[in-house]
Design a protein around this nucleic acid. Structure first.
Length: 289
DNA sequence: ACCCAGGGTCGTC
DNA sequence: GACGACCCTGGG
């Protein structure tokens, strides 16, 4: 089952812990006293530490750590090349990239990503993290590693044991029904996640995701970007709309800025890398300006 | 005490 | 296609 494992990469580029884990794409990674980050992923508990230009992965995992990390951290994608291409778009993006130069788009578990981003609706990141932790503590599986107890994110079967009222007690608010319904839809394969993963056509995937309760345009885009490697999709939330308006649209009334217009500009400027550009812009705008 | 906003979506008109 | 409602929490 779970095995204690370790994996080291020397001289890594485009890999900064804070940029990766605090840029808003994931909710289950926490910084430790020594500056490393520990997270719970589908395959177990993982700690990532950076020493100079070397990265040390260690953890208690149910699959080969090298395989897991290669996939989860998107290690086969050349981010140096991506940054080079995007930096030529304009100085705005170039500045954002310099700030978040160590960002990588994680390849997260589809099921967990769907539920996490349903919870993200009209919510803030600290609260989203707390809710997901409580869901895991109550319905996930406990794993002990280095004398600490961690909880995996529950499977659809495990989470289906929660009633709407149970979810409300965990602080989900009005999202309780959405999580409940979507869990049932996925469990009974009304929407089959294994089928979605195999699909080639992004529009077909989007259509299926949108049929889930609580999944609208923005959440569907996040799911496609953060767990299905669709780097061309451009999720537009309040922060992205804000930064895109400030940089390109310059409408006095930010709230009047049309999301369709934002997406169109993103597609024109950033093309097939729009999703990654979005992450640099989001991270920079939220933390700096 | 009160108001506002937060990685939006849904139902209704 | 626009509009308000929606749980909850932290910060002004």
């Amino acid at each position: 089952m779970y095995k204690e494992q370790k994996f080291v990469i020397n001289d890594i580029k485009s890999f900064e812990l804070r940029d990766i884990f605090d840029c808003g794409q994931c909710f289950r990674w926490n910084e430790q006293e020594d500056g490393s980050y520990t997270g719970i992923i589908k395959n177990g508990v993982l700690n990532v530490k950076k020493e100079e230009s070397n990265v040390i992965f260690s953890g208690l995992l149910n699959e080969d750590i090298e395989k897991v990390c290669n996939e989860y951290f998107d290690l086969n994608t050349d981010y140096e090349l991506i940054k080079e291409k995007l930096s030529t778009v304009d100085d705005n993006l170039k500045k954002s990239i310099e700030y978040g130069e160590g960002i990588r788009i994680l390849n997260q578990d589809l099921w967990e990503c769907i539920i996490s981003f349903i919870i993200s609706a009209n919510n803030n990141i600290p609260r989203i993290k707390k809710i997901i932790d409580r869901i895991s503590e109550n319905y996930g599986e406990g794993i002990i590693w280095n004398d600490k107890k961690y909880y995996t994110f529950p499977t659809e079967k495990e989470l289906s044991k929660a009633s709407v009222e149970d979810l409300r007690k965990l602080g989900l608010g009005f999202r309780d029904k959405r999580v409940y319904t979507t869990t049932k839809m996925i469990l009974n394969k009304e929407v089959d996640l294994n089928e979605i993963i195999k699909l080639d056509n992004s529009n077909e995937i989007r259509e299926k995701l949108l049929s889930l309760d609580g999944v609208g345009e923005k959440v569907a885009d996040c799911i496609m970007l953060f767990s299905l490697k669709r780097f061309d999709v451009f999720p537009v939330d309040v922060w992205v709309r804000r930064v895109m308006n400030e940089l390109y649209i310059k409408n006095e009334n930010e709230e009047k800025v049309n999301k369709t217009e934002v997406r169109k500009i993103a597609e024109e400027k950033f093309g097939s890398l729009a999703g990654i550009a979005q992450q640099y812009l989001f991270y920079y705008r939220k933390n700096v300006s």
